[in-house]
Design a protein around this nucleic acid. Structure first.
Lengths: 272, 272
DNA sequence: GTCTATAGTGGGATAGAC
DNA sequence: GTCTATCCCACTATAGAC
């Protein structure tokens, strides 16, 4: 895995303020992963895990109260009753606090969506429910989502939704969309190859919705909700069209494009 | 090239430490390329504009050499032979340096693309050229594009490509895509309403390519270039399909979606 | 209006003692 | 694992020169 040329190199000497200087697979003792309900690496000790959770909890609370930028590491440490150094022991940069949040939310979303779409087999509706569920789960965090998003957009950051470090959360989300499709009446009618590809594409669709949501300033992000209501039937119809013979060539090309350019980017195959 | 590292250290309590060896630029001929094509506020004086350009030029050079985060405002000021305060006089925050870069690049891209696509009327090829041209124009900045992108992804920032402040540059780019379409043999065959909407959609397509490019770590971003080569014919074919009667309902819905949810977001109409 | 010089402030991140 | 002390830098403030 190639590092970004000079810009990412963390030289030993100075302390560069704003530089993320994301460490690679470092040998540090900090369990960067987090206590995921989905099953992550085991914590070293109970006490360690408790401190870690305390810091994360405190940070999330303060982020909601004052926003990401306005919440200083000093404030988080003070509020959590630990030293700044200790906070950095668990989260080697401020942005790593976000990873914990991201993991947790992904899990909650998947659970909530599965519960809510269980009653229907209509693909369009299942898709809409899955997206709506995300909006509901994320709603409390909309105010600081801008900062969150900013960090996530950095390709050199492990927090990018496309990064290796985000793979577990991404896999959880893709799995949900596989269920959305498989549990619908549409799946059996579709070409098997397409059924294989679609969950990742639907996840990308969610990413677009997230993008829209982040920029949405309407009350209760009503505009994004309307966007979901309007766009899901269209998406369902376009997928449905793929069944007709006339579209075979164009669908074939689209599948090739997805397979060759989208999936590798999100870690589905090693091409390069 | 790192010989200015020493000049970077100025503090220590003594006055006039590391005084700029370079005298003010007032004597020399201004490297001024004229006021920004993007339609910016008029410069107060030539000297002012020259200083502004000098600072921007220096910053871009240092960003390329060391990356965005590693380039300090002190270094930019020192290297440009101005005071830190002066640098802040022109660019009230470090990230505003990026806006200058963005404006300039947009203009260069539009000019280059128009030149290169003049010889053909094939829509697919014109589109490919326009995107290729962007990749060529942006190539020197790929290494620090991550930081650039990170800033651009913040919806609260004026640097977001969707923001009001970015409107001039965005308009320039959309105008280019209008030319891409209008200069092609495809335009007269399409529904007029669609011709009106497509330039903005094509600009969004560019945004997707940019996203892909930012994350692309292959040499010379060959992968993104391949993505463009493969996806432009598909895009052209899909647009072409819209002419057929069968698709009228789906095209109508898609147009509605664009009109109601995409255009307002990028400042094309006041809905809300 | 343009610019220098200097002295801060505050916050992200680190080193090294314990 | 945890702390204290410190670094470095973005950014601000101010006073005054031209």
């Amino acid at each position: 895995m190639d590092d970004l040329a000079a810009t990412n190199r963390t030289d030993g000497g100075n302390g560069t303020a704003g530089a993320p200087a994301v460490p690679g697979p470092e040998g540090g003792p900090a369990p960067e992963g987090g206590p995921l309900p989905g099953g992550r690496a085991q914590p070293k000790t109970d006490k360690s895990e408790a401190t870690r959770a305390l810091i994360l909890e405190t940070a999330m609370r303060l982020f909601q109260e004052r926003g990401y930028e306005k919440t200083t590491m000093r404030a988080i440490a003070t509020e959590a009753g630990v030293s700044v150094g200790n906070a950095y022991y668990y989260f080697s940069a401020k942005e790593f606090l976000i990873q914990g949040f991201y993991d947790r939310m992904t899990y909650e979303h998947a659970a909530d969506a599965r519960r809510r779409m269980a009653h229907t087999r209509d693909f369009s509706e299942r898709l809409r429910i899955a997206l709506d569920s995300w909006l509901d789960t994320a709603a409390p965090y909309h105010e600081f989502s801008a900062q969150f998003f900013r960090t996530a957009a950095d390709p050199t950051s492990s927090l990018s939704p496309f990064s290796n470090e985000s793979h577990p959360a991404r896999a959880t989300a893709v799995e949900l969309f596989r269920d959305v499709l498989q549990g619908s009446e549409l799946a059996p009618k579709l070409d098997a190859e397409l059924v294989e590809l679609l969950p990742d594409v639907l996840w990308l669709y969610l990413m677009i919705v997230v993008l829209y949501w982040v920029f949405d300033r309407t009350p209760d992000t009503e505009r994004t909700r309307e966007f979901v209501r309007r766009s899901t039937p269209l998406a369902a119809r376009m997928i449905n069209l793929s069944r007709y013979r006339v579209f075979r060539p164009i669908v074939r090309d689209a599948k090739g494009l997805i397979q060759d350019f989208i999936l590798p980017t999100i870690g589905k195959a090693a091409v390069k």
